[in-house]
Amino acid sequence: MRFGTFIPQGWRHDLVDIDPSEHWDTMRALAQSADAGPWESIWVYDHFHTVPAPTDQATHEAWTLMSAFAAVTERVRIGQMCTCMSYRNPAYLAKVAATVDMISGGRTEMGIGGGWYEQEWRAYGYGFPGIPERLGRLREGVEIMKQAWTTGEATLDGQYFQVNKAIVQPMPPQQGGIPIWVAGGGEKVTLKIAAQYADYTNFTGTLEEFDHKSAVLRGHCEAIGRDFGSITRSSNFNTIIADTEAEVAERIDAVEARMARHVGADTAAEYVHANYHSDAPGVGTPEQVIERLLERQKHGLGYSIHYFPEAAYDRSTQQLFEQTVIPALAEASGDDL
C-alpha cells in the first residue's frame, strides 16, 4: 500500500490558535517533514470556507499552496483532494497545474471532482448548478486538461466550456501528462468518467460500499475495454491513533473542544462523532488501524491518504503512524477485487 498525508491549511479548523503570520511556517515544516519521511505524497483540500460551518478562520488556497510546496520540497508528490472543476476555467487550471509540475520537477497530482460545498459556491458567486451540470463540467474539463497536457493545446466546443487552441506551454514534464485522480463514487457518471480518464479513483465508505463502487468501476472499464487493474483505488481516512484506546478518546475530545470554540458545541460534537467514531478505519490503536487497513488492502485499496487533525499542534500521532502502520502495510500484498 502507498501512503499520503494531508497538510493542515485551516479548512477543518486545524490552524486555529496559531497566529496567521505563523501559518506558512507551520505548513512548510509539516510538508518538509513528510518529504523527509515515509510518505509518498502530501495533499491539501480545494476549499475557501471552513467546515463544518463557515467561520472567519483562515482557509488557505489550494493551488497557491501547491506551488509553494513544490518549491520547498524535493521528493514527495503534491496533490489536492480534490480540485473543484467549476472554481477555475479548466484551460487556465491546466496551465496552472503544468507550471506547478515544472516547479516540482514532475511531482504534481491532479485530484478533480464536481464540487459539493454549496455555501462556498454561492458565497464566491459561482451559483450552485445541479448535479448533472456539475458532472458535465467535470467531464469536459478533464477532456480539456488531457488534451492540454498531451498535445500542448486544447480545443473543445462543449456545452459548458469552449476553448479554441488554448496553448499550454511548456507542457508538464511528466510523460503522458499529470496523473488524474477522479474523486467521488457516483455510479452513473463519476465512475464512468474515472473509467475513461483516471489514473486513480478516490472514494470511501464502509467496506461493503467500497466493494460495490469497485464493482461498478470494473463494469465501466469493461464496457470501454479498459484494464480495471490500471486504475489505482484510493481512500481518505481521518486518523487519530495512540497506544491506548483511552488516549485515543482523549485526543478526539481535544479536537472537538478546539473546534467547538468556533462553531459551537453541538456542531462540533456532531462533526467529530461522524468523522472520528471508534470503528473508523483510521481511529484506534496501531494494531486496530493496521487490521482495518489490511482488510481494505485485501479488497483492492492501493493508496491510503490520511488526515491528522492534530498535526499543526502535535505530530506525535502522525509519527506513531509512521513508525507502526506504514511499515506494517507498505510491503503487504492485497488481493484485487
Rank of each mutant, 00 (worst) to 15 (best):
T190L: 13
G186H: 12
A29Q: 08
G4W: 11
E120C: 05
K95T: 15
R134P: 07
A269F: 08
V163M: 04
G130E: 12
A98C: 10
L30Y: 07
E40G: 10
C84H: 00
F48R: 09
R233L: 14
M1C: 03
M110K: 01
H299Y: 05
R233W: 06
F210T: 12
R107A: 04
S333G: 07
A312N: 06
D19M: 02
V163P: 07
V163G: 05
R251L: 15
I42K: 02
T232K: 13
E222I: 13
M102Y: 02
T50I: 09
T5C: 15
Y200A: 01
H212P: 03
S304D: 13
T204K: 00
G225H: 09
C82H: 09
I193A: 01
Y271F: 15
T201S: 10
H273P: 00
P132T: 13
W63C: 09
C221Q: 13
L337A: 08
E245P: 08
I231S: 05
T73D: 02
S21Q: 13
A195D: 09
L329W: 10
S214P: 02
W11K: 11
R258Y: 05
G177L: 02
E61P: 05
N202M: 12
T55R: 08
R251N: 12
G158W: 15
P132M: 04
H23I: 05
V182M: 10
T204N: 14
N275A: 07
P52A: 10
I178E: 01
G205D: 12
A311D: 15
G141E: 02
E295P: 00
L156I: 09
Y200M: 05
S214E: 07
I240W: 00
T206W: 10
L135W: 03
F48Q: 03
A29D: 09
D227H: 07
I241K: 04
M110H: 07
I78L: 14
M110C: 12
D279E: 07
R251F: 10
F321C: 00
T73V: 04
I241N: 07
I18N: 04
T317D: 07
N238M: 13
T59M: 10
